[in-house]
Design a binder for these strands. Structure first.
Length: 296
DNA sequence: TACAAGGATGCTC
DNA sequence: GAGCATCCTTGTA
């Protein structure tokens, strides 16, 4: 099949497709053989295990000029320019928003240049999970973010002939979003759009190790994305149920960079909270149901 | 078979 | 030492 075009994503009002990937919806637009634009469908969602809807916002609808209005060519040109700019802003916002979410999930910096080997490894594990790739992370061992950014597409292919180009494109779009679009003008636009990233409302990455109970709360506070795997039974009392133990464990493993994480280990950690008075079993004990001792 | 409880040990920060 | 991660035994539904 086709590969996503690398470099700054090509954006035009009539060719925007936001792709449904598990937790992210990235606009990938690629050139077809005849020079036109077509969608590259990279959707490899774990339909059952992952949220029904991605974390991304709904697909933007570019303003459309009614042909019946037939504006003068000059006006039409300006309108198209404005339209293009608007759509570009929306797409930029979408990508940045999704990068931000991934940064929070992985606890890494947005700029790959700042990643150390462990950050790169976490990003690779997450990408594996996102696109259900085989263990590509082992093929990119011991690389810092700087190393990764200095690699060409050919270098990526050399390490993985099958998925190198895809990984390169994935990284390239990420970098384009973080570096290429982070001009003062674009940041102003993104601020106007109400995106949380870089506007001071939510710190992107604090590099503080997260506690399991905090992570569980995080998931519970995003029912739109995670209610299929964990949800409140009684929010006021802090009682929650793990609906998909394997999935929650997998998410925790990704967050902590522990690929071997499973529910057996996660539940052991939860039980450590019994003594500390952070989490307990509810008065009427039920399988996979726990209670925060101090519900907020 | 999956979950629950908790002891023991090792690792990282 | 805190906070897990890992491995383990025993028990339950």
């Amino acid at each position: 099949g086709m590969r996503p075009t690398v470099g700054v994503p090509i954006i035009a009002p009539d060719c925007i497709f936001l792709l449904g990937v598990p937790d992210l919806s990235w606009p990938l637009v690629c050139l077809t053989g005849n020079g036109g634009l077509a969608r590259e469908d990279l959707s490899m969602a774990e339909a059952a295990a992952l949220p029904a809807q991605g974390l991304g916002s709904p697909e933007p609808s570019p303003p459309i000029l009614s042909p019946a209005q037939n504006p003068p060519i000059e006006v039409q040109g300006k309108a198209e320019e404005y339209c293009l700019e608007q759509v570009q802003s929306m797409v930029v916002g979408e990508v940045l928003s999704d990068v931000n979410k991934a940064c929070k999930l992985l606890n890494i910096a947005p700029d790959p240049q700042e990643w150390n080997c462990m950050h790169v490894y976490k990003w690779l594990l997450w990408t594996e999970h996102l696109y259900r790739l085989p263990q590509i992370s082992t093929l990119f061992k011991e690389l810092s973010g700087r190393d990764l950014c200095s690699m060409t597409e050919a270098d990526f292919r050399e390490r993985s002939s099958q998925f190198g180009d895809m990984l390169y494109a994935h990284l390239d779009i990420w970098r384009s979003a973080v570096i290429g679009f982070s001009t003062p003008a674009n940041l102003v636009k993104i601020k106007r759009m109400g995106k949380g990233w870089m506007d001071g409302t939510e710190p992107c990455c604090d590099y503080q190790p997260i506690h399991l109970w905090q992570f569980l709360r995080e998931l519970l506070h995003k029912p739109h994305n995670y209610s299929r795997c964990i949800r409140w039974i009684n929010k006021e009392k802090g009682i929650f149920k793990i609906e998909d133990s394997a999935h929650v464990a997998r998410l925790w493993g990704i967050r902590k960079n522990r690929p071997a994480m499973n529910y057996d280990k996660l539940s052991r950690s939860i039980r450590q909270y019994y003594k500390k008075g952070i989490i307990r079993k509810p008065d009427v004990s039920r399988r996979l149901v726990y209670q925060f001792v101090n519900p907020i």
